[in-house]
């Protein structure tokens, strides 16, 4: 803060500098937050029941939406890919085409987006409300680390549930593709699954696995961070929730491209 008003020419520069400092500062706090949370994961005591509760919160409660979106994604894929392949007379490859797109790309990404919408936003709102009603301060003054109780269990639960949700999404999606391709469009069942076994190898599955694992960290990290650093009042919680979902979604897509270009 300067006491004398700056010359007009410098004001823009000043604003830019402040903006840059702010961004760097926020990034630093964002990173430190994860570091501190990981530190509480690695040191005892471990809050086992909080961890189980978070698995229920993030995983079990997102199950229905995962099954629903997984099924329809598979069906859409089945139909569209069939219509494309049939032009080249290679509709026999419908099975591997559906399976590979699901396992390598769509499964991890769409499952992560769905869990973000279903559980990530709720996580931010819950922690945000705990912040503005001083429940987090109450933990702090009990000499207990709120990160250990609220953030660490969520991140660990993200690591466990995201790969599981992705696996469920993939399986239901492949079945959706089967429904359309085999039951509706008359492809033979043997072709659909047989070609799949030929073309999908472990490496594809591992690609999807690593992706979903990292999305689990990214989403729970962003959502708990936004909840922890909520603004004032109900409006602050609303904004934090929106921010958390938007930032998580963007990071999922950016990180997915990055992983896709690094992983085999």
């Amino acid at each position: 803060m300067t006491d004398r008003p700056l010359p007009l020419a410098l004001r823009a520069l000043d604003a830019l500098g402040q903006r840059a400092t702010y961004v760097v500062d926020s990034l630093g706090r964002f990173g430190t937050f994860l570091g501190q949370a990981l530190a509480t994961i690695l040191t005892p005591p471990f809050k086992f029941w909080a961890f189980i509760d978070r698995i229920h919160y993030i995983g079990y409660r997102s199950l229905l939406i995962i099954v629903l979106t997984g099924g329809f994604t598979g069906m859409v894929l089945g139909l569209q890919v069939y219509l494309t392949l049939v032009r080249f007379g290679s509709e026999a490859y419908l099975g591997p085409a559906v399976a590979l797109s699901l396992i390598r790309e769509l499964g991890p990404v769409l499952a992560a987006l769905m869990v973000t919408g279903r559980a990530g936003s709720a996580l931010t709102a819950e922690i945000g409300i705990m912040r503005i009603t001083e429940q987090i301060d109450a933990l702090t003054v009990m000499a207990l680390n709120p990160l250990r109780y609220l953030v660490a269990p969520s991140i660990l639960a993200g690591l466990v549930t995201f790969p599981l949700m992705t696996a469920i999404f993939d399986v239901v999606g492949i079945f959706g593709g089967y429904l359309v391709g085999v039951e509706l469009l008359g492809l033979s069942q043997g072709t659909y699954f047989g070609e799949m076994q030929t073309f999908v190898d472990m490496q594809d599955i591992m690609t999807g696995f690593w992706k979903s694992l990292s999305f689990g960290v990214v989403v729970t990290w962003v959502c708990t961070y936004k909840g922890f650093n909520v603004g004032h009042g109900a409006e602050g919680v609303a904004k934090a929730t929106t921010d958390a979902v938007v930032l998580s979604s963007v990071l999922i897509l950016v990180w997915d491209y990055f992983m896709g270009s690094v992983l085999p």
Binding site: T133, E134, Q135, D137, A138, V141, A143
Partner: peptide, 19 residues
């Protein structure tokens, strides 16, 4: 700071109960 807080009890203005 936690060492000092071990000796504290705090009643917040809004109660701050874990809901």
């Amino acid at each position: 700071l936690d060492e000092i807080r071990q000796r504290y009890g705090v009643v917040f203005q809004g109660g701050a109960l874990f809901d």
